[in-house]
Simulated assay, not measured.
Amino acid sequence: MTDRVRLFQTLPHTCGYYAERTAQNLVVDPGAPHLDRLYGPALTKGFRRAGGHLYLPQCGACQACVPCRIDVEHFVADRTQRRCLKRNADLTIEEALPGFTHERHALYQRYLQERHSGGGMDAADAEDFQRFLTAPWSPTVFLEFRQGSRLVGVAVTDVTLVGASAVYTFFDPDEAARSLGTFGILQQVELAKRRGIPYLYLGFWIAGHPKMDYKRRFRPLEIRKHDRWIPMP
């Protein structure tokens, strides 16, 4: 990031992780030229993409959201993760172009209705799908998981020279036994390895939050504190 890039702070809003807390984000000027070139450096500073926005939590009374990333070169799957890979050995993985298709959207809707009912996203239409998961400037790949011809999961992945970012994963809610969320991260690690990318960014980790605890299992994991990346204890 440079002093020639404008940063904006959002108005206070309800926190997506703790309903009783108020949150604010620091956002890179969405009208800035060459956002594609800014994306990699922004990742290294802890920013994350949602739709066409690069943001970083900037909450005055709370610093719970901590950026985290997997050291791809030194990552070794643990026993549980190896079992996950074995359970899904019947799936094929394809690096596909990003964007809306009726097949993807139908799966996305089923996932949101089952996993995030009442969360405000479960009625996402085609425009919502496109706006949230993609951006015109973003180097995005959709990793598709198929059992035969049937689409069972999609891991939305942004790919830059300095790091890949696990943006969002959605999958068939009837396939919960496959642990496709974990499988998605493992496939994103493999994508990064194939392309010689050093890190897979997992967004934010929150100590003690049940929806974030799974990230601790991908070792070695680094967290960003005091403007530098350090190994997670």
Rank of each mutant, 00 (worst) to 15 (best):
A64R: 05
A77R: 07
Y108D: 09
A77I: 00
I93M: 01
G120N: 04
E94F: 02
R115I: 07
A89W: 09
T101S: 05
D71G: 02
F142T: 07
Y55N: 05
T101G: 03
R79N: 12
H105P: 05
A89D: 08
H116S: 10
T80G: 15
R82D: 12
R115C: 06
A135H: 11
N88F: 02
R104D: 06
R69F: 05
R82G: 12
Q63P: 05
Q113W: 11
F132H: 12
Q58I: 14
F132L: 13
Q130S: 14
A126V: 05
G99H: 03
H102R: 15
D90G: 06
R104W: 02
V66P: 02
R146G: 01
T101R: 04
E94H: 08
N88L: 06
Q109A: 13
L54K: 05
E144K: 03
E103A: 03
Y55L: 06
V141L: 11
V66Y: 01
T80N: 15
Q81T: 04
S149P: 13
C59S: 06
C68W: 00
G118L: 10
D71K: 01
D128M: 15
A61Q: 09
E114H: 13
F132T: 13
T101A: 03
K86L: 13
H105S: 00
C68K: 02
V72Y: 09
A89V: 06
Q81S: 04
R83D: 13
D78H: 06
P98N: 04
P98Y: 00
Y111W: 13
C59M: 07
C65H: 01
P57D: 01
